[in-house]
Amino acid sequence: MLEFKNVTFKYDEDETDMLENLSFDVNEGEFISIIGRSGCGKSTVFRLINGLLTPQKGEILFDGQNIKSMRNYSAYMPQKDLLFPWRTIEKNISLAMEIQKKSKAEIKKQAEEMLKEVGLWEYKDKYPKDLSGGMRQRASFARTLLSGSSLFLLDEPFSALDSLTKISLQEWLLTEWEKHKKTVLFITHDVEEAIFLSEKIYVVSDFPITHFEEFKIPLPYPRKREDMKRSDIVELKEMLIKNLRQEAVL
């Protein structure tokens, strides 16, 4: 579905490359987490995928087509919910559909169905300031779902939430993913979160990024919290943390 082919990228103000000949694939319907130390270039990878940045060398392909000529193939959900404070929750989640010039009736129908699905029906006429952090992230995810894209780029969406809300939203996200069969790329600092959510983890282990170290998670879906206590999972978690620590020291 998504293919990076020898992608090299450097910010104008930097002396060294951020990405150097990076190649990787993402298959349709996969849930992949990308972990790595702060500032290692994870978010740059997302900005390249959604076309906000252009690589100096190499190609990024979506369903075999270069993304340069494409629009609205990926939906981005950042750490901050970025809900527009002057729009009600219903209007906020309708944003992408409005841009795609869908009919008013269609927008209303889809928005209402989605509000019910994400449990925000009673808040449809409220403004973002009236919602809790968890609700706002759910609204933000609903907006991402309604963008109609099949590739989701989630950039640390739960990192600003308290631990209980974070846990319940992780479980909720998995249910939604299984239901909608979207492809998800998920950036996180939290190794446990990455293991619980994803099928595969890509670890950023060098700078500039030349490759991702790939780890498969040996857990079937649907997943339960108790699975995280399995000895092989605990071992994997310890190993990943050790890896990241070494990088931090380097």
């Binding site: 906000l52 629009r71 609205n72 981005y76 970025l82 527009f84 944003l95 841009i99 795609q100 963008s147």
Partner: peptide
């Protein structure tokens, strides 16, 4: 927010 809108096309 502007970038978010750009990603929506």
């Amino acid at each position: 927010m502007e970038e978010l809108l750009i990603t929506y096309g």
